[in-house]
Amino acid sequence: MLQVLVLGLMNGGIYAIFALGVVLVYRGTGVLTFAHGEIGTIALYFAYFLVAKVGLPWSIGALGAIALAALLGGAFEFLFVRRMVNADPVSTVVLTVGFGLFLLAAEFFFFGASPRNLEPPTKHYFFVIDNVVVRPWQVAALVLALVLGFGLQSALRRSDFGLGILAAAQDPAAVRLVGVPLSRVTLTVWSVGAGLSGLAALLVEPSVGVIAPGYASELFVIGLAAAVVGGLTSLPGAFVGGVVLGIAQSASSRYLGSFGVSGLQYIVVLTILLVVLLGRAYAPEVRRRLATPHAGAPSTTTAGAAA
């Protein structure tokens, strides 16, 4: 039981950080991003390049990776997303898919298909809870997700610009009418959201051990699902969604086995996603059915008209 919980929390923290990036971008700009997984992956490759090839210390490499991720997110917003102001949201989704594929191709192009390895700085530190090996970065991910999920909103409230970001999520048109430069809001939001993806990728790498093209995407997709489960606009919801999916995964592999194949986690995620989405879609109808018992006879007080 504790084992399931610990494992779930460790994974859930990572999902939650991805989910936070998704929610931030969606809230601030109304765009659902599918590109942030690859942004994370390529940032990780960049860290590998800085540490393993250039020989910089891990911390510098990590900072460089996060900076590159933020830069990529910002550049993408500035060059492409900005032109899609009045576009159908689905077209914008496809645009982010295209950017993800572009980055995936770039990973192949610059680093090839063979996996790379980035040595984490704290390889030898770990502790054990109920037979689960817990490593510091996993705890860091969880704590970070917790802090961002519940603290980011109040941090944003402190500055005028941050307030503008929160307001833009509620009503982008009105934000312009009070004089907040909306384009700077969207640029910031994309950069920060992408930076979070870089961070999430860095934190999960030591557990996986190798970097391969598209590798963060699998985690990102679960993070995306977590964001949707958490309501897509709520930062605390993103954290909760991530943790719920993480625990559901570890619980399913513990109690359901794996049905003879790996990858059951995706079915679990998909099921939770569908249950939550359909539940939300049907909820108003169900509530209405419950609230208004069908009146048999219509009231006909004002019926009739000149014949």
Binding site: L163, L166, A167, Q170, D171, A173, A174, L177
Partner: peptide, 8 residues
């Protein structure tokens, strides 16, 4: 429609 920011 006034458009105040409802969550602020």
């Amino acid at each position: 429609g006034r458009q105040v920011f409802p969550d602020l």
